[in-house]
Amino acid sequence: MVDLRGNPFYLDEAGERWVKETETAMTPHEKVCQLFADPLMGKSREELIQFLEEYPLAAIPFRARLWQRGGSGYHGRASGAKNSLSLRGKL
């Protein structure tokens, strides 16, 4: 068991409860997706949404200098995942 109140998390009771409730509500597929990060470069907004609905990643690397709109879509990073502990629904 991970100590969510200790180093490096330092969560209070409400934060610890939220983490446990969120993890319990996640499907096995969503839990496996939490193990991966994908840069998602060169995808359109629609492609990003479709991908992240299918694969709720734990993280998406972001480099501000790469974020620009042009051509066929966004050439950069996006954030969002169905049940991500850190990126819950922010696309």
Rank of each mutant, 00 (worst) to 15 (best):
M1G: 15
M1R: 14
R5Y: 09
G6W: 08
P8A: 12
P8I: 12
F9I: 10
F9W: 15
Y10Q: 04
L11I: 07
D12I: 10
A14T: 05
G15Y: 01
E16Q: 07
R17W: 03
W18V: 05
K20Q: 13
T22A: 00
T22K: 01
E23Y: 04
A25F: 06
M26Y: 02
P28M: 04
P28N: 02
P28G: 03
H29E: 01
H29T: 02
H29D: 04
H29K: 01
H29S: 00
K31W: 04
K31Q: 00
K31A: 01
L35T: 09
F36Q: 00
F36M: 01
F36C: 02
A37S: 06
D38P: 00
P39N: 13
L40Q: 02
M41G: 15
S44P: 06
S44A: 09
R45Y: 14
E46Y: 09
L48W: 07
L48N: 09
L48Y: 01
Q50H: 14
Q50R: 15
F51R: 14
L52P: 08
L52A: 10
E53N: 10
E54K: 12
Y55F: 13
P56C: 13
L57P: 00
A59Y: 09
A59C: 09
I60D: 02
I60K: 07
P61R: 06
W67R: 09
Q68L: 06
R69N: 04
R69L: 03
G70M: 07
G71D: 15
G71E: 15
G76R: 12
A78Q: 02
S79H: 07
S79Y: 08
A81I: 03
A81N: 08
K82H: 12
N83E: 12
S84G: 15
L87R: 13
L87S: 08
L87W: 10
L87E: 14
R88H: 15
L91G: 06
